[in-house]
Nucleic acid binder design. Sequence first.
DNA 1: GGATAATAGCTGCCAAAGCAGTAATTGCCG
DNA 2: CGGCAATTACTGCTTTGGCAGCTATTATCC
Lengths: 161, 161
Amino acid sequence: MSKQHYKADTYKSQSSIGYLVKRAHSLTLDVLEPVIEKLGFSFIQYVILATLRDGIAVNPKDICSQYRHDSGALTRVIDQLAERGLLERVRRDRDRRKVELQLTSAGRETIETLIPQVVDKLNEVLADFSKPEFQELMRLLVKLNTTLQAHVEPSVAAVEA
Amino acid sequence: MSKQHYKADTYKSQSSIGYLVKRAHSLTLDVLEPVIEKLGFSFIQYVILATLRDGIAVNPKDICSQYRHDSGALTRVIDQLAERGLLERVRRDRDRRKVELQLTSAGRETIETLIPQVVDKLNEVLADFSKPEFQELMRLLVKLNTTLQAHVEPSVAAVEA
DNA sequence: GGATAATAGCTGCCAAAGCAGTAATTGCCG
DNA sequence: CGGCAATTACTGCTTTGGCAGCTATTATCC
């Protein structure tokens, strides 16, 4: 039986992980979007550019699973970025189903301009956190994601069984 | 000048608070939605019912600001719940602009059925966390929300100045 | 007290995300 | 080698959220 972090009879939705995380997500968007929109980009566009810059993913598929974004929706965002000349779709002969996304020099310039501003904003917001506090928050969020991931996958794998 | 939790030249988007929180949010939905949809409700419907049960908010306006949901969108969700006979809109004479949302007995029964299942699922997911770890995560998330909130409000207040 | 601003909820419109289904390519297994 | 399943990207359709504007009601300020 699981540890009893929550109990049904004392559970309050405002102290639920789900609520706290959703709220943090919305608030983070509210804080970062103005910074990014000032340069004419949406948050999701920024995310894709940043992901490509960091070399975290090169295929739309990978971005989807990394960032948990819908595949169809992502295709359209990539269209926008390609039309603005910030990235290019390259078919590789290795596996012609895959599309490799490559930043153009304009795309690279754009993301290198955006990141410092986002970083500044994040640092400003997180100023109240001590170094250890911040690092502990990061560690716990990573752990939370890992455990959540493990409880999502089974339902997918269960279909296969 | 702000503490340098992040630095532009070493910043990786996958270790950004924004990324971690967004991912945690998506994964939490993926874990909880199946539980809630099994009883025929969407997550946002559950949130409203839970909020009313806990007495955290009685007006649509309060739910909006608490949960960071769009006012227009919320109206339509409340419509759905009212049509299904789970809550009622009551105009109070005290301030006739406001609508007081009241759970019906069917609504109360529904949410009391849902909560234990959500709690069980959360405990299952959080089993890897020790008590202190869990409490520290909660504390840090609350603190994060508080500081984020403080950095969102100013932009609203600034317009007034 | 009366004009004006502010608040609460609602409605219509638009953009974006989620979902299912398709086409092209590759992997797998007899 | 051949047929079937799996993978990747993409495209329509539906649902939802976000935004602006509207009405009714209340608060404010001269």
